[in-house]
Amino acid sequence: MKLTNGILGMALALTLGTLGALAQSTPASAPAKPNDDTVQTFHLTNVVREPDGNEILVAIRNMISPTAKVDFVSSENAIIVRSSPDQLALVEKIIKDLDQPRKTYRLTYTFTEMDGSKSIGTQHFSMIVISGERTTLKQGSRTPIVTGSYDGGKSGTQTQVTYIDTGLNFDVLLDESADAIRLRSKVEQSSIADQVSGVGPQDPIIRQTVLQGTSFLTVGKPLVLGSLDIPGSTRRLDVAVEMNPIK
């Protein structure tokens, strides 16, 4: 009996010793690191269109960690980012590089009326354009055209009239890259012909000429875009454009 109790005591002592050694050799769990993410709002100072803000948003999402939270608030023209301080510094640099003011230029279109090789007269049309923004200029008249009539009862016959624009229309888009400035322009000239159509005396003939194309401009150097023939005559209009930056 004493032998049995001795053996049990030795086994218990060995077991307790082993558990103590295991407890001492097992390292304590490292405390969880606190979340060091920070929320910061970046206001865009030069972006005026929502698509431009979305382009910057896409660039940021492609460049920083996928765990970061990024959103564009169009009503505030701002980008909100939740991420670590080093990622926020990267976002700040990206916005600084992309949120740049757009350059402004003055475009001057010159119409020179020619009869053969002789210059008869010159007209100038100027407009202020921002790189990447579409600009239009219209000069002319709104011409009434009778489209029909109806019985107005006691008021008698009523005439229906619509109006069309005649004259000169300019539709331009100027954009720039690292080594070139590209102009996409459409110049449209329309007028009422002297003769009438065979449909009816109230239906005029509208003469129309369109000059449309893409050109690359040099600052301060006029570029001839083309010529518009004047119907019913031997004259023509030579169209040139000159671009100058506005400081």
Rank of each mutant, 00 (worst) to 15 (best):
L3T: 07
N5C: 11
G6N: 12
A11S: 14
L12E: 15
L12S: 14
L19E: 13
A23P: 06
T26I: 05
A28W: 07
A32H: 06
K33V: 07
P34W: 04
T41W: 06
T45A: 15
P51H: 05
E55K: 14
V58P: 00
I60S: 01
R61A: 05
N62F: 04
P66A: 04
D71M: 04
D71G: 06
F72E: 02
F72G: 01
I79M: 04
Q87G: 05
L90E: 08
K93H: 11
L98D: 04
L98E: 05
T104D: 11
Y105L: 02
R106Q: 15
T108K: 09
T112R: 09
E113R: 08
G116S: 08
S117H: 06
S119K: 10
H124G: 02
M127E: 09
I130D: 09
S131F: 04
G132P: 04
T135W: 05
V146G: 01
G156F: 00
T157N: 01
Q158N: 07
Q160I: 11
T162D: 15
Y163H: 15
T166G: 08
G167I: 06
L173Y: 04
L174T: 00
L174C: 01
R184I: 14
R184Q: 12
V187G: 00
Q189K: 06
S197P: 06
G198H: 07
P201G: 05
P204E: 04
L211T: 08
L211R: 03
F216R: 07
L217R: 01
T218N: 08
T218P: 01
G220Y: 06
L223M: 04
L225Q: 02
G226A: 11
L228I: 12
I230M: 05
S233E: 05
S233D: 07
R236M: 13
V239G: 02
K247R: 11
